[in-house]
Design a protein around this nucleic acid. Sequence first.
DNA 1: AATACACTTAGCAATATGGCTAACTAAATT
DNA 2: AATTTAGTTAGCCATATTGCTAAGTGTATT
Lengths: 109, 109
Amino acid sequence: MTHPLDSFFGAMSDPTRRAVIERLASGPASVSELHAPHKMALPTFMRHLKVLEETGIVRSIKKGRVRTCHIEPEPLIAAQGWLAWQKEIWENRLDSMDAVAASLEQFKD
Amino acid sequence: MTHPLDSFFGAMSDPTRRAVIERLASGPASVSELHAPHKMALPTFMRHLKVLEETGIVRSIKKGRVRTCHIEPEPLIAAQGWLAWQKEIWENRLDSMDAVAASLEQFKD
DNA sequence: AATACACTTAGCAATATGGCTAACTAAATT
DNA sequence: AATTTAGTTAGCCATATTGCTAAGTGTATT
């Protein structure tokens, strides 16, 4: 997984990790707070967090014994950009197909 | 992987599969055409295609011995929607933090 | 000083993923 | 009818992923 999009999409393919992002979108939180809604063991959950950090979607600072996590929006924006790009190419093609179809209308009958 | 976004993001986390999508965005293609730029063995490549089909991002029709593949945009749009949603929540929060900061300005000194 | 809290590290097990080759089916082409 | 082409099926192997438990580290709290 060399390309940034590889790891970003990989990270977002897990529901636990998406839930963490959804939670962090509305503000920073500690590891325990993030873990609370999830049934899995803490070490398991921590590995999900680690994936998010390695991908650069989440950053964290430890103060005393509490690690506080927050979102880093750049990777998310990059992924959005890629999807938008695909959509654009694909829409342009469909539009031009419509245009061709329309230009052929004049030859009807 | 139950949620549609799980499989969508999972599918897009592989560079080969993203390349296929990029190719298909500009128009339908046969399995051989799609396979050509990739160094891997055909059966391996076919499994990538299968992942894309199972996720609903790609559909295909077989005519004679040729299978032609095309994009199904819905899953892509759904994913874009999710990302846009996250971004919106996150931006609203930052805006309101700005607002709070601004409203505190009057108490300066 | 002792205990509780908030992570953290190490290591195991099961399943998923991504690559391969070999062999097969069915549709064109010659 | 024989051969080539396009895709398919089956099965093997290595690594990655996702869950667990047990035990350890460092920081508050009592």
